[in-house]
């Protein structure tokens, strides 16, 4: 039985990092960014009277003629090729609606999935009726963004054998800006678990995925299988590490997660839930990263 209560009087006030210098290129909504002649309007801006103004608070980014303002926190804005994790909300005619932490629910077309067994054929009427057998409401999938619709919603596909329905594991939700786009988002960590870093801020932690196994497109699930205790402990520790890195605003990629895991081994798994322990680990991770990049 453990009950831990604190009150503000005994918490050491971990003050912010003192004076934070203002960033250059920072704008607030309504601030003028550039004259729109010669510049293209990107995300986070709007035109008025021939001038580009910022519509969100963030940092101005300019790539050639394209000017955008990147906010520090927002809903996920998809790009083609992103790996995302989503939850099925609805099965409609010939497609599923998937919730991906974006402004509108994404769409997974029936033609964009692999059939169980990896068959390749045109989907028949039977397949349409059997859609709920493949994926029903509440299921989690990993997928890739195939295209963007005109209203900004995403169309996903799972046409690669490593995408598909996710089995037993833990989902952690973080701010999408913490997940940078990198070469690979699927990691088999040395500590004994596998992590999928969705660009939309959904992180999936599960037991190690054996690459050599013949994939069935991910639709078969063994719900009777019980994950052993040691693997559960690794998964629990990883999920706490990811949460504490996210609340301390540390970027999430394999290096940071692995170093957080290693540093956290000195604590018990449930101690990682405490705010001060989390802050300390995050600080050590940052210090370790700083020394490594030098």
């Amino acid at each position: 039985m453990s009950v831990e209560m604190t009150c503000p009087l005994d918490a050491t006030t971990a003050s912010g990092s003192g004076r934070v210098s203002e960033l250059k290129n920072m704008v607030t909504p309504g601030g003028r960014v550039a004259a729109s002649a010669g510049f293209m309007r990107g995300h986070g801006t709007y035109t008025i009277d021939g001038d580009l103004h910022a519509s969100v608070a963030g940092v101005v980014e300019q790539v050639n003629k394209l000017v955008c303002v990147k906010p520090v926190k927002s809903r996920y804005i998809g790009e083609i090729g992103d790996v995302v994790i989503g939850r099925i909300t609805e099965a409609q005619q010939k497609r599923w609606k998937v919730e991906t932490n974006s402004r509108l629910d994404s769409v997974l077309m029936l033609s964009s999935v692999n059939l169980p067994g990896g068959e390749l054929r045109r989907k028949s009427l039977e397949d349409e009726l059997m859609m709920r057998e493949y994926l029903h409401e509440g299921d989690l999938i990993s997928a890739e963004v195939q295209q963007l619709f005109h209203d900004g919603s995403l169309s996903l596909h799972t046409r690669n054998l490593r995408y598909g329905k996710l089995s037993q594991g833990v989902l952690v939700k973080v701010n999408p800006s913490l997940v940078k786009r990198r070469k690979t988002h699927f990691h088999n960590l040395p500590c004994g678990a596998s992590v999928i870093l969705g660009c939309n801020g959904y992180i999936w932690i599960s037991r190690l995925v054996n690459e050599q196994e013949t994939h069935t497109g991910g639709y078969a699930q063994n719900l009777d299988e019980v994950v052993p205790l040691e693997e559960r402990q690794v998964i629990a520790r990883l999920s706490n590490c990811v949460s504490l890195l996210a609340s301390n605003r540390v970027l999430l990629y394999d290096t940071t997660i692995i170093s957080a895991f290693d540093i956290s081994l000195q604590y018990e798994i449930k101690e990682l839930l405490k705010v001060d322990v989390g802050a300390e680990i995050a600080l050590e991770v940052r210090a370790k990263l700083a020394t490594e990049t030098q």
């Binding site: 912010g16 203002e22 960033l23 250059k24 920072m26 607030t28 608070a57 940092v59 990147k70 605003r249």
Partner: peptide, 19 residues
């Protein structure tokens, strides 16, 4: 409000190492 927003964005962006 603008001062508060600028301060907040600076803090967060610094944590995220955007500079």
């Amino acid at each position: 409000l603008q001062t508060a927003i600028r301060k907040h964005v600076s803090e967060v962006a610094t944590c995220l190492q955007w500079e």
